[in-house]
Structure formats: structure tokens, C-alpha cells
Amino acid sequence: MKIIVCVKHVPRTQDVRIDSSTNTLVREGVESVLNPFDEFAVEEALRIRERFGGEVGIVSMGPPQADQSIRSCLAMGADRGYLLSDTCLSGSDTLATSFALSRMIEKIGFDLILCGQETTDSSTGQVGPEMAEFLNIPQVTCVMKLDLLYGDGKTTASVKRETDTGYQLIETALPAVITVVKGINKPREPGKLDSQRPVVRVDAGFLGCQPDKLGMDGSPTQVVKMVPVRHRSRQYAIVDGSLSAAQRISMLMTGGIKEKAGATKVREEPESAACKAADLIGESLALTQVMPSKYH
């Protein structure tokens, strides 16, 4: 069983800032890490290998530094790492990314592809399904439990897929793309980083495709503007060094929450308290015309 896990090297989201003069991301001083959701996919791949044998290959597309994330997967126990890195790939949207990754994985060979449910930087969850389409294989997203079954000389996957209202039990032929949810397992701590273990680095030439399918040219979507969100909650953000000492003290005292104007606090018999509550419920739901008389 050849398992490929797709991972991404992402900026720690709490470090991301925007340069208000240019409206572009400030990348200096922003530390990048393995996308936290991907740890669950790597762990799941390792568990499958432990039970059924095979090997776990880590695939990533990104700048040369992305090999740090691949290395931390190797330190968890993955067998091989592959990094697709080329300046012509920058500006790829999910379609161009999925196309490039699917080409890459096709060249490497695979029986099963695992992904995290989404990345913390762009949170689309689209690359898994789009790769599955390019590879013409089935997909199951948001998997909370994964088992492999052997029968009739074939391996199939039996999965539990989380939905908005519950779950689906699905059986899928392999190869397939499976994206796993956070919490499907408890990822192991990485062992010692071994700087000697090679990460195979390839450029876009490896994909053997027309350049207009890649990067900006291969991306149907364009980002036309980035604007910082004006968080009302900014004032509640964890008390950090950007605030003055006085602000920090006041925030610690109040918890950063402003007292609601007109807040009333009553301490009375359950009956009358319940009446007051029912009144307010009626008012909140615009039932004033009928309800109050009922309770007085």
C-alpha cells in the first residue's frame, strides 16, 4: 500500500499581518509550520502502514523552506518526502495547485491519498476533491474514522464521514482521496529531526505539462484586493505586548469585556424571576402584543 499524504507549510495564523500602506501580507518575521490539520492525515497514514504495511510518502508544494514541514512528517515516521518547488507555481489558486499536485502524485505512484480537512491559512478544503477529479478517482471528505478492507483481491476503504447533521457510512474503492477531520486520531509527537534524511525536490519540469496550466496562468481566480478585518474583538485579544501597561492592567481587571449598558441583575423568588425572563423572551421575539399581560 503506497500512501501519499499531502501537506502544506503554512504561516502561523496569529502572526499574519497586513501592511496597511500596500495592503499586502507582511511575510517578514512570520514563522511557518506544518498545517496543524495535516498532522492527523500523517498519523492516520502511519497507522495504516503499521497495520497493513506499505510506505508513507509526504508530498508538498511550496517554497524551498517547506521542506521543514516535510521533515517534521519524516520525524513522525513517514518514509519519503517530496517537495514540488518552482517560482512559476507561485500565485496558484486551488485549481492550479490541485492540478500540479495531482500530476506530481501520478508520477510518484499511489494507492491512497490522505489530506487534512483544510489548511489554516486559506481554509478552503478544496484541494483534496479537486485532485480527486484530476486523477479521476473517488473522494470522501471529512472522514472521522477510516478502515481498510480486503476482499475479492481488492482493497476498499470503509469510512465514517462527518456531515452537518450526523454521519454517513461509506465504502469506497481505492485509489481514492480521503480528507480527515481534526480529531480522527491523536497525532504522535515527532521524533528527532534527522537532517540527513533526503527530501526529494523537483521543479515544474517534473510535471511534464504545459506551463499555462500552472501558477497564475493556470489559476482561474484572481485575488484583486486584500483588506484587514477590523476586529471589534481586537480589544478582547489576549493581553499582549502591543498594549501599554495601563491598557494591560485594565484589560486584566475587566476581562476586556465592556459591561452592557442597561444590564439588570435581579435576585428574587423563582416565580417572579421567571416572569421577568418570560417577558423579555416575548419582547425579544416580538411577541409583546400578546404576552406581557399573561404574566402580570
Binding site: K258, A263, R267, E271, C275, A278, V290, M291
Partner: peptide
Amino acid sequence: FKVADLGIVGDLFEIVPKITGLLRENKGVL
């Protein structure tokens, strides 16, 4: 209580069922 329009200091197990009861009487309206 700082963010509440109405804060009730008391035992929720006494108060909540009473609110439910009051509202049930008006179920037709709801």
C-alpha cells in the same frame, strides 16, 4: 452578568422549568 440584559441570581433548576411552564401556557402564540 456583565453582558446580560437580564441577569437572574438564583437556582437555574428552579427557574428554568418555571419559564418553560409560563411559555407553554402561551404555546399557541409561539
